[in-house]
Write a protein that binds this DNA or RNA. Structure first.
Lengths: 208, 208
DNA sequence: AATTTTCCTGAATTTGGATTTAATGACTAA
DNA sequence: TTAGTCATTAAATCCAAATTCAGGAAAATT
């Protein structure tokens, strides 16, 4: 029984990360019905190697999705780094929640999951948690702005936050389905239209 | 070469309908990766019989989804039958767009498709068309209400209509994923909150 | 009634992917 | 060194599902 050295565990987690990323990319490409071989291909290994680390493919897929959601959320928070003005924060958040184009792998993964969640409890739980975290993020942002007098909220912040996240989600699906007249910018403006009503602030503002 | 009699075509379309319904139910249960055998089971036939009518399962699935969307849309229009007051029409439309519970097969089918649309052009086209039809339905409703002076629209009707459909879609996914605090009624009230802002009308109204 | 066509089944076959396993090289610890 | 563990592959095996097809019942046509 070897003691886990720093180097060893660094390597281990790097390997684990490779697998999770491969699974994410494979799922973004093939959906939740992705094959073990397809994951292996993305990882540059044989299926046996995958099985050595994850005897059950489902476990790997779940872990990959958890990691994907975590990254998605973390990136959104990171995009707010150093921005203090609530209106600017709201502008950035709305923009960062939408996929830029049809090939956005992160959102593609989330879309694939959304369809599965109606039938698969574990994915339902994960997506529900992600939804609620995003709602909480918006709520904090809205409440802060209201306290500072920048926003006049038309309703309680929970209601507005839920609607903002819901709009993002739905337009994410539309963009991923290549709606001919509904791209990232059009969708952002549609959400801004609601955000203006809900906050009485002339959004969007210039971001630095 | 037999002439197609009235009876024959009635039977043919009945059979076709059976297959489409079986495929819909099977897909609602198993998602877009549904197996031929699962469809056969729902149809009460062997897989060979399915293949006799649809040599390619994908064709059957596409037809089934088209039929499902058509029904979903038709039912929404039918729910408005005989209602003239725009506010009442808007109330009914918002309510009828949301799944009542997690076991709503129609919405379950649409959710499964949404995830697939990012990867499958034909489903993307179908869902985009459904989205646009629903938007058009709301637009007509909003414009009529505005003309009659019942609604004061905060923006152009296209913007409001898109946001209303987007909210419905997103909350449909949440409800299907069994969000613990976001059921049909909560979701409807969230949408009404936006609809009030957008129309300056104290929705919802009593429906008869 | 006889014939043809339509629809379907059940069994045989094929296919594609998952799973197992023996062998191997790389690394680690004593 | 040497022995042992770890990570991996490639090939063999297994399995489930798709596909094909000969045959037969039912329906339609003559």
């Amino acid at each position: 029984m070897a003691k886990t050295s720093g180097r060893e565990s660094r390597q281990k987690s790097a390997k684990r990360n490779d697998l999770l990323e491969a699974a994410q990319r494979a799922m973004a490409e093939h959906g939740t019905a992705v094959r073990l071989n397809q994951v292996a291909e993305h990882a540059g290994m044989t299926s046996g190697a995958i099985l050595y680390h994850y005897p059950d493919l489902q476990d790997l897929l779940v872990d990959a999705n958890r990691a994907g959601m975590e990254r998605f959320y973390t990136e959104r928070v990171a995009a707010l780094e150093g921005i203090n003005d609530p209106a600017e924060r709201l502008t950035v958040t709305i923009t960062s929640g939408l996929p830029v184009a049809q090939d956005d792998e992160e959102v593609r993964l989330l879309c694939a999951l959304g369809g599965e969640a109606a039938r698969n409890t574990i994915y339902a739980v994960l997506l529900t948690a992600l939804f609620d975290r995003q709602v909480a993020m918006y709520q904090t942002l809205l409440d802060t702005g209201a306290t500072q007098g920048v926003f006049q909220l038309s309703s309680d912040s929970l209601t507005i936050a839920r609607n903002l996240v819901a709009l993002e989600d739905a337009y994410g699906y539309r963009i991923m389905a290549s709606h001919p007249t509904l791209d990232h910018d059009v969708a952002a403006n549609l959400i801004f239209d609601y955000a203006r009503l809900a906050t009485s602030h002339p959004l969007p503002v210039e971001t630095t």
